[in-house]
């Protein structure tokens, strides 16, 4: 994997005695759009900060463009764009000056893109950053991250304060980044529907570990709901392997299982006396089932 954009190996992080992340191993390839999901406090921001080199690993490592993230050289830093959860804008500056400031740090900058987005999102260049609404500050943060056309774009709850129209524009920008097969995106967001549209890979952080890291399609194929609607044939004790949850009613049973594949249908049919109906789950439903 010498061409990986990010590689984490047994990455762990503790703050004092509090362990936040334990032994995470995952990677990001060019062309990936990684959706990061997890409850509040699951360690999503910490994981992103480790990848950005904002904080050192307690053990294990994470490499970005081949370099230890904690010692990222300037040339590599210039290829990473970041939208933080709490913006880092300078309140006293005008929007125009704020843009010029960030622009000055980079050798290459897409003026046309920045101009277009500023106009699209109706951000007044003359306005002071301090008078911008929360939504506008978020939009500006996104624009600033996109300006240098980073190869790796990392976003931490970038659209929490945006209305659906602005969010749609944002999604289109991510599509553009994804359409360039040589760039990658890591998006941490509670707006599961956004991740559902865009992600090719999913990371689920749960209990300090990566519960899932892999293809989104594979995740959807793996975790499904099974329905059996003939109560008559069900055994008294229902034991379905790899079931996350089983519910019985007068009319039958429902089970949420992981590691599903169609061959298991026959195995389940033998157990319950009927071919189960397989219901695919939305990403939100998968997330909720994993946290019941």
């Amino acid at each position: 994997m010498t061409d990986s954009y990010v590689v984490a190996r047994a990455l762990s992080k503790s703050f004092g005695r509090k362990s936040v992340l334990e032994s995470l191993s995952c990677d990001v390839q060019p062309g990936d759009v990684v959706g990061v999901l997890g409850k509040n406090g699951a360690g999503k921001t910490t994981l992103l900060e480790l990848m950005l080199g904002f904080t050192p690993a307690t053990s294990g490592e994470v490499r970005v463009f081949g370099h230890d993230s904690w010692r990222l050289p300037g040339s590599a830093k210039a290829r990473v764009g970041f939208v933080p959860q709490q913006d880092e804008l300078v309140n006293q500056l005008s929007v125009g000056d704020q843009i010029r400031l960030i622009r000055s740090f980079y050798k290459s900058w897409d003026d046309a893109l920045v101009d277009r987005l500023v106009r699209l999102w109706e951000i007044d260049l003359a306005e002071r950053v301090r008078s911008l609404s929360v939504g506008q500050r978020q939009k500006l943060s996104i624009v600033l991250a996109l300006g240098p056309k980073p190869d790796l774009l990392i976003l931490d709850e970038p659209v929490a304060s945006l209305d659906p129209i602005a969010r749609r524009h944002f999604l289109e920008q991510i599509v553009e980044v994804a359409a360039d097969g040589n760039r990658a995106v890591i998006l941490s967001s509670h707006i599961v529907s956004d991740i559902e549209r865009l992600a090719s890979r999913i990371w689920i952080l749960k209990d300090r570990h990566l519960y899932w890291h892999g293809d989104f399609d594979a995740l959807r194929d793996s975790i499904v709901r099974l329905h059996v609607r003939t109560a008559a044939t069900l055994p008294a004790e229902l034991e379905i392997p790899n079931a996350l949850r089983i519910e019985r009613s007068e009319t039958g049973a429902m089970a949420v299982v992981r590691d599903w594949n169609p061959e298991r249908g026959r195995e389940i049919a033998a157990l319950v006396g009927a071919i189960p109906e397989v219901e695919p789950l939305t990403l939100e439903e998968i997330f909720l089932e994993l946290h019941r």
Binding site: G31, E172, V175, E176, A178, A179, L198, S200
Partner: peptide, 15 residues
């Protein structure tokens, strides 16, 4: 085109 369709529906172009 892949890009057009992806943009229109706001979905991943790889899909």
């Amino acid at each position: 085109s892949i890009r057009e369709l992806a943009l229109e529906h706001a979905i991943n172009p790889m899909t």
